[in-house]
């Protein structure tokens, strides 16, 4: 039984990683085929460094992910605190339901609904072209907000409310109490919300695709337009680099965490 489950787990992981392995392999291919491996070369990595449109798209994606996740984290955290203070159950439910709409809706519906709004607003305001960075940013903040609120709210609920009152009894202003007592208590929720928002924004294709116009291209959109034709392996090279970066980050964070727990264990002794 035990070995059967091991074989099964291994099999699933092999299938899960096969496309990635193939991608890594062919990023080193010496010809532009993605089916036949003709020999090792680094030419696609060189090509990637010279592909200014792809690098521009990479930069756009990073700028978008950082700005949208920062704004969503700030607005979302403040909102989560505010929502937790609302007493009317009806009001709370209404806000939460609306907040969760982008999470429940398929991406394509969220994307086109925002596109319709932007197109309509553009026409009414008589502007020629508004779809671009700002509209994609608005869209990303919107779909990031529920994830931030969702990860901050439980931390607020877990927090002892008397602590805030104690801080104010001891002379803190409400703002000081918020910064010195509440904020540190809910910080883990804020951080995990931020990471989730950042990841989602980095990876989003569908919503960006519908809310962007000519001139602003994120990496997934660039990949989409490139895969309409035959992909050259420089896309594989780029994905390999991203994959390695993520892998290293994950391993580092795991090692750091492991060290932390070891230290804690030692301190306890």
């Amino acid at each position: 039984m035990k070995s059967l489950s091991k074989v099964y787990t291994a099999l699933i992981f092999i299938i899960l990683y096969a496309p990635i392995a193939v991608m890594v392999l062919f990023s080193f291919n010496s010809s532009n085929s993605t089916g036949v491996f003709t020999g090792f070369s680094l030419q696609w990595y060189k090509e990637l460094l010279n592909d200014s449109a792809t690098l521009e798209a990479l930069k756009n994606t990073l700028v978008l992910a950082v700005s949208s996740s920062c704004i969503a984290t700030i607005v979302g955290t403040v909102a989560a605190v505010g929502i937790s203070k609302i007493k009317s159950k009806y009001m709370k439910n209404a806000i939460n339901t609306v907040t969760n709409i982008p999470m429940m809706n398929p991406d394509i519906v969220t994307g086109i609904s925002m596109m319709l709004l932007f197109v309509f607003a553009t026409a009414k305001l008589g502007m020629s072209q508004t779809l671009g960075f700002s509209t994609v940013l608005i869209a990303h903040i919107t779909f990031n907000l529920p994830y931030v609120i969702l990860s901050v709210t439980p931390k607020i609920r877990q927090m002892d409310k008397h602590l805030t009152e104690a801080a104010m009894d001891l002379g803190c202003t409400p703002f000081q109490a918020f910064c010195k007592v509440e904020l540190p208590a809910i910080l883990p929720g804020i951080i995990s919300g931020f990471i989730m928002a950042f990841t989602l924004s980095l990876d989003d294709f569908v919503i960006s695709y519908f809310t962007t116009g000519n001139g602003f291209e994120t990496l997934p959109i660039r990949i989409y337009s490139m895969t309409k034709k035959r992909v050259t392996p420089d896309m594989y090279a780029l994905s390999t680099l991203i994959f390695i970066a993520v892998l290293v980050l994950l391993i580092l964070s795991n090692v750091a965490e492991g060290d932390g727990t070891k230290k804690k264990a030692r301190a306890r002794k």
């Binding site: 607005v75 979302g76 403040v78 909102a79 605190v81 505010g82 929502i83 203070k85 609302i86 806000i95 609306v98 907040t99 709409i101 982008p102 519906v109 969220t110 086109i112 609904s113 925002m114 319709l116 709004l117 309509f120 608005i138 869209a139 903040i141 919107t142 907000l145 609120i149 409400p174």
Partner: peptide, 24 residues
């Protein structure tokens, strides 16, 4: 004042979640 903290989010939701749905 504390409840007012939810206000930016509520305004944002009405503008960019509810309004787009109405447009659909």
């Amino acid at each position: 004042m504390a409840r007012l903290m939810a206000a930016p989010h509520v305004v944002w939701s009405i503008l960019f979640i509810v309004a787009p749905m109405l447009f659909v």
